[in-house]
């Protein structure tokens, strides 16, 4: 992946050198834009897949794509990367901001430099853009899955698999991450509104540690023998919870709904580790983000919000190519 990134950069460098040599004629005939994608972190299947989608769109449109990010989800790591990207003066930036508030000022700099800013996956401010309301509405569009809806979909699917009754809880990473918070919010809202016979127990936070998520399942099951299901709000929450269920000897009895779908979920769905997996469409986010940027740069208007979909994966549909293609892959 890193190597590919390096090659992309080489390619971009060559392209810049090329346009430098042929500036006028090339610009006159067919202006080539540089679109930068700054993910929340580079070492995650979700963003790698998003990159793939963005690259596909850039190739189709004949534009240059720059992919640069920090290796972990962290504001203090993302901001310097963003600043370096701004310094290269791309025409547009697609970014998954790691914080709603702290990324506003750094992105404002890009905006002031005349760079078109788009948010993908996560957002700044309240995620509603181009309202003229305040400082954080300058991004042109927010392209993402609706994580609240994703949580609701998980709730419906989990409710169905446990017979619409019993006790469940959310295994989550840590509070304060906009996307996972929204999944939990959507999950709880759906259960509360439409599944009165399901009781949602206290959320357990695992710090993205599968070992801890597993122990938490065991502890909760230890005092709640009628535990029926768990919603793992991200990959490690789900993987860890599944192991906890296995260690507790409850495999297949306590159902698990997993959020996100790296390739490993195929096996986990087939062997019954996960009852369901909710796949976002990160490639779609990358593709439409890039298309939106291109549309804007070429003088077209773009919608201020683009919602991308979900696919519910189960062991029965996972071999269907129309489902399988939503697995996150590099």
């Amino acid at each position: 992946m890193e190597r590919r990134q390096f090659l992309t950069m080489l390619g971009a460098g060559a392209a810049v050198a090329g346009t430098g040599a042929l500036t006028l004629p090339a610009r006159a005939e067919n202006k080539k834009y540089t679109i930068a994608l700054v993910p929340g972190l580079t070492t995650d299947a979700f963003y790698i897949t998003m990159h793939r989608g963005a690259q596909a769109a850039a190739d189709a449109l004949g534009q240059d794509l720059l992919f640069q990010g920090a290796s972990e989800w962290n504001v203090t790591l993302q901001v310097p990367v963003l600043e370096a990207v701004i310094a290269r003066k791309p025409d547009a930036i697609l970014i998954a901001p790691t914080d709603k508030v702290q990324l506003v000022e750094p992105l404002k700099k890009a905006f002031d430099a005349g760079i078109a800013v788009f948010c993908v996956d996560t957002f700044i401010g309240n995620g509603v853009f181009q309202t003229g309301a305040g400082d954080a509405d300058f991004p042109l569009s927010y392209i993402a899955s609706d994580n609240i809806l994703g949580g609701r979909i998980a709730a419906r699917a989990l409710a169905k698999s446990i017979g619409d009754k019993g006790k469940v809880y959310v295994s989550n990473v840590k509070p304060g991450v906009s996307t996972t918070d929204q999944r939990e919010e959507g999950f709880k809202a759906e259960i509360k509104e439409n599944h009165p016979n399901i009781e949602v127990l206290e959320t357990q936070f695992n710090d993205d540690d599968a070992n801890k998520a597993a122990a938490q399942v065991q502890a909760v099951f230890g005092r709640t023998p009628d535990l029926a299901g768990i919603f793992g709000a991200n990959l490690f929450s789900a993987t860890g919870s599944a192991n906890g269920v296995k260690q507790a000897g409850q495999a297949g009895k306590i159902k698990i709904a997993a959020f996100d779908a790296p390739e490993s979920v195929v096996q986990e769905l087939k062997d019954g580790t996960f009852e369901i997996a909710i796949a976002q469409h990160p490639a779609e986010i990358g593709y439409f983000g890039t298309v939106a940027a291109f549309a804007h740069l070429t003088g077209n208007s773009v919608p201020t919000a683009i919602g991308t979909g979900f696919t519910v994966m189960t062991k029965d549909n996972i071999d269907d190519p129309n489902v399988k293609r939503f697995l996150y892959t590099g």
């Binding site: 992946m1 890193e2 580079t42 299947a45 790698i48 290796s71 390739e263 490993s264 892959t329 590099g330």
Partner: peptide, 14 residues
């Protein structure tokens, strides 16, 4: 860390 992520390609390796 870098080596691990490189070898895993950012994914988990089932």
């Amino acid at each position: 860390r870098g080596a691990a992520y490189l070898l895993a390609g950012g994914m988990t390796v089932p």
